[in-house]
Design a protein around this nucleic acid. Structure first.
Length: 533
RNA sequence: GCCCCCGUCGUCUAGAGGCCCAGGACAUCAGAUUCUCAGUCUGAAUACACGGGUUCGAAUCCCGUCGGGGGUACCA
């Protein structure tokens, strides 16, 4: 049976690139009626956190990438966390030692760094090998265990890239157990993939050069290795890596702009204003940290948008899980037949490793935005209400407090014209709160020409309407639109008065939902606005 | 530096020697519809990195150049 796995390390939020790797594994498993496994690779005791693991689980579930075996959300760590499997690793480690394929090494990190520097000076590549001269003697410090790699060329057939081959003198004796007693990634991966009967390892191309090392291990352990497929990376439009640094950069620039020339004291003030630790802010500005959480705190405090990098960023920005999934599938994979919009089922049917390209894919947010709009327009109201509720769980727009009936009304107006849920949430704020007047729009559409006077007339036309319904309002609305020399110009004044800005859904629907009282008071309020310079 | 991988419109891609003076989608531009914004419809422009081979014939095969990416950790 086909078995794939996604094996993230819980050292941060779930990155979209990783989500795509998970998706490919999920698709491949489902395509072949196999199983998809999730395994948490928390062998780095310093950087791994339980919160990060929990976040990854919930992001994958939000995307609909469920697993057949793996961690249980909300439950304590189970056997799908590598930190729970030390006995297993040690068992095989001892076996390798017994077979004399693994051995202790005593160099300190400083010594290793010096050795590498030395090699670099001599313009020779540094390879740690058991038989090399100058190895540190026992007693020098805590030992690590290294695996003695064979000296032969290792070749394998990558299911995406084709034959890959690395010469014997390129290998080195990798550390398989760190001095803290934990296995390294290389060792734990091999043991677990074998133990969990993984048949296909589909992972990012950054692991390509690790595969020969793993193959060396499989062979020493006498195991049949799984098939490997290395998928190309997803990068920014400028070819740089998509990383949390991108978010930090934007947040930092905005912060610096906000602070301008101000002195240290301003940091403290800012920190309390944002309810953030002062030291965190100074470190952040000094580029000592790129912390994502801090970056998004700063962004929300300064009301700016950060580039989306992690799955939850996209969720907060109002993307539909299915649209995001569809989009990332298409970066690097082609279903053929000029297909673009695909359901999960269709993706499964059409998926093949042969359809995955060999080149890195640029993450084109414009296309994602288009695709999200497509999904929104095609979705049923119920689907959208569900998506909206999921969106509301992680955001704080007024729409959060709307009931289903209200959401339905809003969807009627916004479904056709939004490309993200946050667009609707943001643009519909005026239905819930007093409008924030856009002074430019007020000046242009209300206090110029005879618009203010027309707005007064409009008020007079609306006021006598007794039953505030479509039948009564529609003809009046028609008359308002036809007012004056330029069709729609007077209506624009009304739009600005009720919504605060020059853009809103069609006025008839807007006024109907807003109600008679709010419509009239807002007109009064707009007309009473102080003169704008 | 060394090792590995890659190179079709701005972007994601189709293309597995003749079906290709290269197809689709996003983006861009122009027009139509319109109370704003969207949306929708119609149309336009844009690519086989370069240089050598092989072949009757190359985007497709080979070599080189250039370019891009990844790796080179007691991180995964």
């Amino acid at each position: 049976m086909i078995k794939t796995r996604y094996a993230p390390s819980p050292t941060g939020y779930q990155h979209v690139g990783g989500a795509r790797t998970a998706l490919f594994n999920w698709l491949f498993a489902h395509k072949h009626g196999g199983q998809f496994i999730l395994r948490i690779e928390d062998t780095d005791q310093v950087r791994s956190t339980a919160e990060s693991a929990a976040g990854i689980l919930s992001d994958l579930l939000w995307l609909g990438l469920n697993w057949d075996e793996g961690p249980v959300p909300g439950a304590p760590k189970n056997n799908f966390f590598q930190s729970m499997r030390l006995d297993l690793y040690n068992q095989y480690l001892n076996e390798l030692i017994r077979q004399d394929r693994a051995y202790e090494a005593y160099e300190t990190p400083q010594q290793l760094a010096a050795m590498r520097q030395q090699a670099e000076k001599q313009k020779k590549p540094f390879r740690y090998r058991r038989n090399m001269p100058g190895r540190a003697p026992k007693g020098n410090g805590p030992a690590v265990i290294r695996f003695e790699m064979p000296f032969e060329t290792i070749t394998f057939n990558d299911m995406v890239l084709g034959p890959i081959s690395v010469a014997g003198d390129e290998h080195d004796d990798i550390v398989i157990r760190k001095s803290d007693g934990f296995p390294t990634y290389h060792f734990a991966v091999v043991i677990d993939d074998h133990d969990m009967a993984i048949t296909h390892v589909i992972r990012a191309q950054e692991h390509l050069m690790n595969t020969p090392k793993h193959l060396g291990l499989y062979s020493a352990l006498g195991w049949q290795p799984p098939e490997h497929a290395h998928v190309p990376l997803v990068v920014n439009m400028d070819n740089s890596k998509m990383s949390k640094r991108d978010k930090a950069k934007v947040a930092r620039a905005a912060l610096q702009n906000y602070l301008k020339g101000s002195q240290d004291a301003a940091f403290a003030q800012l920190a309390s204003q944002f309810n953030l630790p002062a030291a965190a802010i100074t470190d952040f500005v000094a580029k000592k940290t790129d912390d994502s959480k801090l970056a998004s705190d700063i962004a929300s405090a300064l009301d700016i948008t950060l580039p989306e990098i992690d799955v939850q960023d996209f969720r907060r920005s109002g993307y539909m899980a299915d649209a995001l999934l569809n989009f990332i599938a298409l970066v690097g994979w082609s279903p053929g037949e000029n297909r673009e919009i695909l359901t999960r089922k269709e993706m499964i049917d059409l998926f093949s490793l042969e359809g995955i390209g060999k080149t890195n894919g640029r993450f084109d947010r414009k296309k994602l935005l288009w695709m999200n709009g497509e999904y929104i327009r095609r979705a049923s109201p119920d689907t959208l209400i569900g998506a909206l509720k999921s969106f509301n769980e992680v955001t704080n727009y007024s729409i959060k407090h709307a009931d289903d009936a209200m959401l339905r009304e809003l969807l009627g107006m916004y479904q056709e014209r939004m490309s993200t849920l946050s667009e609707m949430a943001h643009n519909s704020e005026f239905f819930f709160k007093e409008p924030v007047y856009d002074l430019k729009a007020v000046k242009k559409h209300i206090f110029s020409d005879s618009h203010a006077e027309q707005l007064g007339q409009i008020r007079a036309m609306l006021e006598p309407i007794a039953a505030w319904n479509k039948e009564q309002l529609a003809p009046v609305m028609e008359a308002i639109i036809a007012m004056g020399e330029h069709r729609g110009a007077a209506a624009q004044a009304l739009r600005v008065a009720v919504s605060g800005g020059a853009v809103s859904p069609p006025l008839l629907e807007t006024l109907l939902l807003l109600g008679r009282d709010k419509t009239l008071t807002r007109i009064d309020k707009a007309l009473a606005l102080p003169p704008i310079p």
